[in-house]
Design a protein around this nucleic acid. Structure first.
Length: 475
RNA sequence: CGGGGAGUGGCGCAGCCUGGUAGCGCAUCUGCUUUGGGAGCAGAGGGUCGCAGGUUCGAAUCCUGUCUCCCCGACCA
């Protein structure tokens, strides 16, 4: 498959580097394996598909959408539907890999359910009629009613029902990372509110409420870890709960002025380090509510001067809904005492594709995107200012080899373009580090190392540059 | 779903009111000169003006219909 692709792309027979070998760290393995990234050859800009734009497309309103288009991450193909171009896909995959890693660590088990579902399944839960026009419905050639899944509660319940008979098979939490479709009335904000979106959704099955609570807490903690690993601060706020009540529904919000929803919280929360292992316990006593839920509160326990109100981008939502689907769909397992019990369920979503936009909202500057190290499409952008200069070419080749050997992913701008254009492009696409090879520094045996986030740049030896680059990745 | 706006080379736009056979900037290609923050000169390629009807000698322009996209509001990961 990859081979066929490469022959399509490269009409030139003798290429310096096969794009096959240069294939990114695509997930052939289910687990997050940093080693898989080791010694991947640098991607040459001149052989990549990276259509950057100087001008901002008129349709894009918010900055993340504008930057995603300008940096060549996505192309819109219909309202709320996007094609992921190579650079964007790398980011999407890295986010998915991080989400996967934390799900696995939390004990969840990955599977993959289809995008297309049958209406019959949804009739079992009664949601086929309840869901409304957001659900994309159609018929196959046999006239059977089908739909493009907006979520998978019915399907996972059906699968679990068919696979599991005994209490011994519980508890389990299953997840997949799959495309969903919701026919939003009004898609907007690029991938942050598209109709088609990539989502991690997990589903827990427990024998009793206590177990359900434990499964919920495990996901809660996994979410804190996931967002921290992504370089994001996403605060959990209570969301409207289902029939069970209590506080078993949280939304995770990245606080940003462009957020679509409003959240209210005790400003003491601003001081909580969400990456800390004790964060879940610290959060337990702190008031934080999604707007609708906050409105229901009659006596807000937070003194007015400490009540903060911010806009938030919802990037995760978890909730516990008990037997809603298991009961409706006849999922039962035999208990230790021989009786049939109906498992309690929860579901846990992360908007993977939405996160790409959300991260950019939270991390950009006048020059363009500023990727967190953990999700950057490439670790390092290598700029050779004089590809035709022998000394520079040698220096660039050496830098490239060293970076590859160190397991760093590299985009090498080998284009025959002027410095200014290369700088602007590299800043726009936001790779965390830049190594710049110029004639003067090269003559002195030095390279220039630039940190995108701060703009800091230093002329250093290649050894020193490598030492600095390895530092943050080891963390 | 209500209200508004827009469809003209890849991107951003002008032309439309007052019909006469399509233009500007960026991008692309060629050559020369350049080369550390989106270069200069010279030349070149690329557009059924969203689509379908209609009016007219003649339609990007006027009329009708239709599709698509965007914005504001109500709703959602």
């Amino acid at each position: 498959m990859t081979r066929a692709l490469s022959s399509n792309w490269n009409m030139v027979p003798a290429i310096r580097r096969s794009p096959v070998a240069a294939a990114p760290q695509h997930r052939l393995s289910a687990a997050f394996v940093p080693e898989a990234r080791r010694s991947a050859p640098a991607m040459l800009f001149s052989r990549y598909l990276l259509p950057v734009m100087k001008e901002t497309p008129a349709d894009a309103q918010i900055v993340s959408h504008q930057l995603m288009l300008r940096a060549g991450l996505v192309r819109q193909t219909a309202a709320g539907i996007y094609a992921w171009l190579p650079l964007g896909l790398r980011v999407l995959n890295r986010i998915a890999d991080l989400v996967r890693r934390e799900q696995d660590r939390a004990g969840a088990i990955e599977l993959l359910m289809p995008t297309i579902q049958s209406a019959d399944l949804w009739r079992q839960s009664g949601r086929y009629d309840a869901y409304g026009p957001e659900m994309l419905r159609f018929q196959d050639r046999g006239g059977r009613e089908m739909l493009y899944g907006p979520t998978n509660e019915e399907m996972i319940t059906s699968i679990f029902r068919d696979c599991v008979r005994s209490y011994r098979d519980l508890p389990r939490t299953l997840y997949h990372i799959q495309w969903k479709f919701r026919d939003e009335v009004r898609p907007r904000f690029g991938v942050m509110r598209g109709r088609e979106f990539l989502m991690k959704d997990a589903y827990s099955f427990d024998l009793d409420a206590e177990g359900g609570r434990a499964s919920y807490d495990a996901q809660f903690t996994a979410y804190l870890r996931t967002f921290a690993a992504l370089g994001l601060r996403a605060v959990p706020v209570r969301a409207p709960t289902g029939p069970i009540g209590g506080d078993l529904s949280h939304e995770f919000h990245i606080l940003a002025d462009t957020g679509e929803s409003e959240v209210f919280y005790d400003s003491a929360l601003d001081a909580v380090d969400l990456a800390d292992a004790d964060a879940p316990a610290m959060l337990r006593g702190l008031y934080a509510m999604e707007a609708e839920e906050h409105a229901k509160v009659e006596n807000c326990p937070v003194p007015p001067e400490r009540l903060a109100s911010r806009r938030g981008i919802e990037v995760g939502h978890i909730f516990f809904f008990g037997t809603k689907y298991s009961h409706a769909m006849g999922l039962q397992v035999q208990a230790k005492d021989g009786t049939q019990v109906t498992p309690l369920m929860g579901s846990y979503g992360v908007g993977v594709s939405r996160l790409v936009g959300a991260i950019i909202e939270a991390s950009h500057d006048a020059g363009g995107i500023v990727w967190p190290d953990s999700v950057a499409p490439f670790d390092v952008g290598l700029i050779n200012l004089r590809p035709d200069d022998a000394l520079c070419a040698t220096a660039a080749a050496e830098a490239e080899a060293r970076l590859e050997a160190a397991g760093l992913s590299v985009l090498h701008d080998d284009r025959d373009a002027r410095g200014g254009e290369k700088f602007a492009t590299m800043d726009l696409i936001g790779l965390p580090w830049q190594i710049i090879i110029g004639p003067k520094a090269a003559a002195a045996g030095l390279v220039e190392l630039k940190r995108r986030a701060t703009g800091e740049r230093h002329e250093v030896s290649l050894d020193d540059a490598m030492a600095r680059l390895k530092g943050p990745r080891a963390a």
